[in-house]
């Protein structure tokens, strides 16, 4: 069963009155709940938000499904979103994704590595085409101007970091 933390509940309560209508708080509250739920929006998350926000679950679900930044399935600790659109596509984004996935042990996009660390997605232009190819992990600052070598090293570094903790 999913439940927001004390702080999470406070956050949701304050967001509900932030905009002209409380529906407008759905996106921010979904982000918060996704973060507290280990990176994804489960049916329980939607149910819980529906109760706390007093908004029908179907409406929250509709929003959660429409936008790509809400994960409707479990993802690894690092959700690696590689841009593969126009410029990044031309400059190696697709090759780089495949190489990273191989290093991480993921056979296809959307699949989480056995160690639970990595899930890869090919995403659309992230607005950083001058530093192509580039990627974003979770909602963290962009990682830019990559090469396949640098990207593979990134997977190794993240794995080492995770093991060290």
């Amino acid at each position: 069963m999913f439940k927001l933390s004390e702080d999470g509940l406070k956050y949701v309560k304050s967001e509900l009155t932030r905009y002209e209508t409380k529906q407008s708080a759905i996106i921010r509250c979904l982000y918060r709940a996704q973060d507290e739920n280990g990176g994804w929006v489960s049916p329980e998350v939607i149910q819980h938000l529906s109760e706390v926000m007093e908004i029908p679950a179907a409406q929250i679900e509709e929003v959660a499904t429409f936008y790509t930044m809400f994960n409707k399935q479990k993802v690894g600790r690092y959700h690696v979103q590689v841009c593969c659109t126009l410029t990044c596509g031309m400059l190696g984004g697709r090759e780089l994704t495949d190489a990273m996935m191989k290093e991480a042990g993921c056979k296809k996009t959307g699949e989480t590595s056995a160690d639970g660390l990595f899930t890869f997605s090919k995403v659309e232009c992230l607005g950083s085409c001058d530093t192509a190819p580039m990627l974003q992990i979770n909602r963290d600052p962009y990682i830019e101007s990559l090469s396949t070598e640098k990207a593979v090293q990134l997977v190794r570094d993240l794995r080492a970091k995770a093991k060290g903790h």
Binding site: I26, E62, F66, T68, F70
Partner: peptide, 20 residues
């Protein structure tokens, strides 16, 4: 939250209203 169509002005308004 990730949708190109929200750059279209009426899509953006729907999104701002808390809808798809």
């Amino acid at each position: 939250a990730g949708a190109y169509i929200c750059g279209e002005e009426t899509g953006m308004i729907s999104s701002l209203e808390g809808l798809k």
